[in-house]
Every structure is written in C-alpha cells, then in structure tokens.
Design a protein around this nucleic acid. Structure first.
Length: 720
DNA sequence: TACTATTTAATTTTT
DNA sequence: TTAAATAGTA
C-alpha cells in the first residue's frame, strides 16, 4: 500500500492532523474544511502506517448516516472491509455494550429501547398514575426534565431539591418513571448512554477490557457531546487513551438538548499534552460567503477562534430581499428557483433553509403552484409511523411480555372489546402489585374484571402466545408477515376506507420488506427479531422517500448541518423568529442562534439569498417583525439588497385555499405591498388578494381602520 | 365504540 | 392556522 493515497489529497493542516504522532489530538475543523476526510484518513493512517489493528480502533459519531459514511469511506480508502473496526453512534455503541453486558448493567437480556414517542406515553401514564394534573405537570416538560437530568448524568438521588417544591415533584416523577422502565425492561435513549457509563464505573474489569482493546478513540462532531458522552469517552480513554477529537465550537447548535461545547475546552484541560490543530481552509464556499460567515460569528464570545478562508474566487454578492409578507417572500424564493432551474441547474442543488418547520408551509404552497418538485426534510420517519409502531408493539410483546407500553398500545388494536375501563383496571392492579400489565391480565386483574372483559383479555393473550409459538421457527421477515396478518392489523387497515388507509397498508407491507432486507450487525450477537427491533428504535429510517427525484430541498437550519448546496436561501430573517424569541432569554441562547446562522451561511457554495418579511402570519395571526440583527452583522460589501420591481402591475402568481392547485393571477394593477387609497378607509397597503375578474378581492391594511377584505370592483381603490 | 365539537398551545431533533 | 388531545354525543 502506498502512503501517498492517504497523504496526497490533504493540505498541510489536514496532513498534520492525519499523521500526528500517537498522542491526544483536537482538530478544530471549520465548516467545509474537510473534517470527515481527516477522520477517515487518520484511521487509514493508523492502520496502514502505524500498524494499528482496526480491532483496536473505535470511531464514534452522532448519526447513523455519518457512521455508515465513515465506514464506507475507510473501506474504500483501504480497499478492504474492516469488519472488526467499531464505527457507530454513541447510542448504537452504548446499546451494543449493554447487550453484551446486560447482566452487569442490571438489565434483562430482552430489554427494549424506548424512543421519544414511547417515552412520552410512559411519562403521561406515570403522571396519571400519580394523580397529578397534567397541565401543571406537562408531560413534555417532564420528559424534557428527565432527559436533561440524564444527559447530565444525574439519577433522582443526585438532584438537590431543597427549597424547590416543583423540582422535588419533577424528581418524584423521574423516580417513578425510572422504576417503571426498570420493571418493564425498557431503556430510553438517554438511559442507554447513562447505563453504559455506569457499567464501566461499576465494573472496572469490563472497563479495562475495553480500554485495552480501544487504544484509539476517534470522535466526530465533538462539540455536540453532552456530559454523559464526554464522561463515557473520558473514562474509556483513561489517562493513556489516544483521543482524536474533531469538532467545531462555532457549529454547536444543540445546547438545548444537552450538548456542551465546553467539552472542547475541558478536553484540553484533561489532556494537557493535547495537540490542537485548526483546519481553516474552506473548500466549499466563495470568499464572499466566508467573509459574511466570519463576520457574523465574530460577534460571539468564548470561541476557540478561527477564521475560514479560501483560495477560490469572490463569487456573487449575497442577495438580501425584504418582503412585504411571508407569501411575497415565498414568491421571491420560488421565482429565483425558477431562474436557477431554467438556467439548467439541478433542483437538488438548491436548498431553502428556515428556522422553524411551520415556515415550510407557505413555501410548499408556492412550489406546488409553480409545479416545482420539492422535498421537505424532517417529519415522521418510517419507524415512527403509527401503524408501524403498532406492528412493532406486537413484535415487542413477543420478545418481552412485560413491555407495558406495547401492551397498552395493541391490547385493543384492532378492537376486541377491551375498553378504557378494562385497561385501567389492569393498569391499576399492575401498579398496585408492582408487576407488569401482562401479569395483571393473567390473573384477570385479581378477579376484578367482568367476565366479558376477562374473556376478551384472555383471547388477546392467547393470540400473543399463539403468535409466539407459530413464529418460533420462522425467518425474521416471515415472522413480521405472520404477525401482521394474524394479529388482524393488516385486515384492520384494509377494511378502512379512509384516505390514508392505503398508505398504511403499503407501509405495513414495506415493514416486511424492511425486515427482509435487514442485515444484522455481526458485532451485535443478538437474535434476529431483537436486533431488528433495536434497529427500528435506534435508526428510525428515512423521513420522506423519493430521494431519487431531482427536487428542491426544504429543511430547517438544524437539519442542514453537515450538508452543502450550490444555491442556498435562508428565509425568515426576522427578530423573534431568527433569532427565535424563546432563545433570547439568556445570552447563551442568542449566541447559539448566531451559530445557527453561521451554520446556515456556510451551507452555501456559490450563491446565498437571505430574506425577511415585514409581516408574517403565525398561529393564524399577523405579526410584524424587524429584520433580524444578524443581517446588520453582515459586512455591507458582501450584501446586495434586491429592490422589488417598481412596476405597478407585475403579473403575480399566488395560491391559497385552492384544492385543485390552480394558479391564480393577481388582479390587474394590484400587487402585494401596493399602496392604495380608499374613499372611506384612507391609505393602506395590499397584503393579499384572491379571485379574479368581478370576484377579485384584495386584503388591505389601512392605516386607520386596520385590515379589511374588499371586493376590487366595488372598492374603487386608487393606486398610489 | 366511533364520531364530532371544543379546547389548547405551537423552536430547533437525533438517538 | 392547525394539530392534537379531550369531552361530549349518537
């Protein structure tokens, strides 16, 4: 193997990182500076040049996608599969450890993973069981609290609740929730990490085994690690462990879910000999875009400090558009997209980024009206769909009868005469006797059930037992298929005449396919069904399908991290929206919003458009907002303001409330933002319009009387 | 039990 | 605005 393949494609800083001696290294890698490349080449370097066995290397990422990509790129570079190299997500690796050492971790061998939906359901149930008012104790907030504590490594007993009644109650709920999880053999996401950490603290022999094996630890996106992840790595690395951490403090945007940028500073303290290497050369964007990004982020404090540069060209100035309202903004974005596409560019090379998901709606309507294919990122993932979760609940019951969450989910699905009363009787009996609902049901809740309910419940349990028996010899996909048909789930949805019923059936059929094509990870020595269920929880699958079609990409700024596009729009640059008003309570929040802005800007390769609207419809109300402070932080020589065309009657397209997707045309002489005068109401601005000809109506915001809808042909408006 | 009306609250999201 | 959860009704 010639080393040139590993070293040649690197710049000086990248090469320094890749070929660094075997010592702790912190790579501060700016956006678009080739951080994944450094990680991949470092692994190749260790294996090829330093003679380290892949068996001794552990590479950790946050997403499954990043993990899969890393493995693929390493194998491609080395030209050989490296199956004994551990590459995975924090959660995936923690899960693997807990399966291997379930007993030492005090977990039943058949423990199941709770995803956030399941977790929320369980929290709700606990709150109800405790007879607490769920508006004072909002399940979402309780869930948030529990996860927040776990992310910080805190068990209920670690939390100081003196002089704080609210907190004390939160901790109570946390305690009960955890007790329920333990009893049911359920592990939530945060618990995976926390348990894995505790596993090592409590079992020095197990820890030593892994410390000896994994001398080399490589961590991607280090700025996103939370306290437990940091502690887990810190313990594994020990004092002699060789940690190779890559991250960018300026791209830390997940503080709100426990990420601690400080971990990067912490790391330097923990390993005084740590070599710090900065990757500042950017291979993605024009220098105009980088200047803007640098200027924005310079307003933050406590940075490790770096400045992106490129030897590429200046490129186009950043374009800024001030829209009258959100519809006008969408229209602007879409017409620029049309230009882009008509110039022969790929739709998939363009992305529209926004702060919150609700903003996608107007954009989608406009894209639909102009018939531009698009794809919205986010939303429900495959394994999160209700019908899929129903099916998985059956499968989980086969694995673990004590899984109350699953039991409750499907005990009456499809309906078999087990109503809310019966279920709550079973639940009460179960919690009174500290046992699972399954066990409670076995005894007919201690005889408290009516005979009719008892029969129904018994039939359900017989069904589960029968399914278990019938599938014991079957392949995974056959098991899934068998359960779908014999549980009645498939039939239940086939009978349904609803609009989405067909999709549900398709999804269920797709689940069989997913099971068929599922390849268990050899490293997780698990029975196929258990492995598949874990896989479903840990890797929820793609959101929307149809990736192959060339379409415009719509997503939040958060989900854009790690991606790049030749053409990028950032829409909704308004105070209160971006930066979001709920982030303004503390200084840290604002800085995180600014980092988010930095992330957004640095997604753009060639051209960046920014836009904001004076008026935006939110929660059914019209809101007026100032332009975002981030716009003022841009260097003026990077930005060019786009003036709306001054023509009085630009043909304008828009669409609203029209199910047929027909395009409607603005009545002649009227356009959004047009100043008009009415004989009675005085001066105003056109906000909206609908219909055409004699029925055309316009919405005008009058200075004195506010917003009114007027029929154009009667209103006798004077254009100003 | 299923359907309909009313109420409530609404950043960001991966695992 | 709208989605989801709850309460009330057939």
């Amino acid at each position: 193997m010639d080393v040139t393949r590993i070293i040649d494609p690197l710049n000086d800083a990248q090469r320094e990182a890749v070929t660094a001696p075997q010592e702790p290294v912190l790579v501060v890698a700016g956006a678009g500076s080739g951080k994944t490349r450094v990680l991949v080449h470092r692994i190749a370097w260790l294996v090829e040049v330093e003679g380290v066995s892949p068996h001794g290397i552990l590479a950790v990422t946050f997403t499954n996608k990043a993990a899969a990509q890393m493995r693929a790129r390493v194998e491609n570079l080395l030209d050989i599969p490296v199956s004994n190299l551990w590459v995975g997500t924090f959660h995936g690796l923690a899960h693997r450890l807990l399966r291997r050492h379930a007993e030492a971790a005090d977990l039943p061998p058949a423990f199941q993973i709770l995803d956030s939906q399941d977790q929320l359901r369980l929290v709700k149930r606990i709150i109800r069981d405790m007879e607490l008012d769920d508006s004072t104790w909002a399940p979402r907030e309780v869930q948030w609290f529990i996860n927040g504590q776990k992310d910080e490594g805190r068990r209920p007993d670690h939390i100081d609740t003196r002089n704080d009644q609210t907190r004390a109650m939160m901790v109570n709920i946390y305690r009960n929730y955890q007790a329920m999880c333990d009893q049911n053999g359920l592990v939530d996401f945060a618990e995976l990490l926390l348990r894995a950490h505790e596993l090592w603290l409590r079992n020095p022999d197990i820890l030593r085994q892994y410390q000896q094996r994994f001398r080399h630890l490589l961590v991607d996106e280090f700025q996103d690690t939370n306290s437990v992840q940091y502690a887990w790595l810190r313990v594994l690395a020990g004092d002699s462990g060789l940690l190779f951490a890559v991250g960018d403090d300026d791209q830390s945007i997940y503080r709100w879910r426990g990420a601690r940028v400080e971990n990067m500073f912490q790391l330097k303290k923990a390993f005084p000999a740590m070599r710090e290497i900065k990757l500042e050369q950017n291979y993605r964007s024009t220098s105009t875009i980088l200047n803007a990004a640098n200027a924005i982020i310079a307003n933050n404090h406590d940075r490790l400090g770096k400045n992106l540069w490129t030897d590429g060209n200046d490129g186009e100035p950043i374009k800024l558009y001030r829209a009258y309202n959100d519809r006008d903004e969408a229209e602007f974005v879409v017409s620029r997209l049309e230009d882009w596409i008509s110039q022969g560019n790929l739709r998939a090379d363009a992305a529209v980024l926004y702060r919150s998901n609700a903003q996608s709606r107007v954009l989608e309507e406009m894209l639909l009206a102009r018939q531009i294919p698009y794809r919205v990122y986010g939303g429900l993932r495959f394994f999160e769909r209700a019908e899929i979760k129903d099916a998985l609940a059956y499968l989980r019951l086969l694995e673990n009868r004590a899984d109350d969450t699953s039991f409750e989910r499907v005990v009456n699905l499809p309906t078999r005469g087990i109503g809310a009363k019966t279920v709550s009787q079973i639940r009460e009996y179960a919690s009174a006797n500290a046992t699972s609902m399954w066990n409670a049901a076995l005894s007919a809740a201690g005889g408290s059930l009516s005979s009719r309910a008892t029969t129904a419940v018994q039939q359900f349990m017989m069904l589960i037992e029968q399914l278990d028996k019938d599938t014991s010899q079957l392949e995974l996909s056959e098991t899934v298929e068998h359960v779908l048909t014999h549980s009645g789930l498939l039939e239940h949805h086939r009978k349904d005449r609803g609009e989405q019923a067909e999709t549900r059936v398709e999804n269920l059929e797709e689940l069989v396919n997913a099971a068929q094509s599922y390849e268990p990870d050899e490293q997780d020595e698990l029975p196929p069904l258990a492995a598949f269920l874990s896989h479903a929880a840990l890797e929820a699958g793609e959101g929307q399908a149809e990736k192959w079609e060339d379409c415009v990409q719509l997503m939040t700024l958060h989900s854009a991290k790690g991606l790049e596009f030749p053409l990028v729009f950032i829409a909704g640059l308004e105070e209160g929206l971006f930066p979001h008003k709920r982030s303004l309570n503390d200084a840290g929040g604002l800085e995180e919003e600014r980092r988010l802005c930095y992330v957004g800007i640095t997604r753009a390769m060639q051209q960046l458009y920014l836009s904001h609207a004076e008026q935006r419809r939110m929660h059914g109300m019209d809101n007026y907002a100032q332009v975002s402070r981030f716009v003022a932080e841009l260097p003026s020589d990077c930005v060019e303001e786009i003036r709306p065309s001054i023509k009085v009657s630009r043909p304008s397209f828009s669409r609203s409330g029209n199910q047929h997707g027909a395009i409607k045309i603005a009545p002649a002489g009227v356009r959004l933002g047009q100043h008009v005068r009415h004989g009675k109401f005085g001066d105003g601005v056109v906000l909206n319009y609908e219909g055409s000809g004699a029925h055309a109506r316009v919405q005008v915001n009058f200075e004195t009387v506010g917003t009114k809808w007027l029929v154009l042909s009667y209103a006798n408006l004077e254009l100003m």
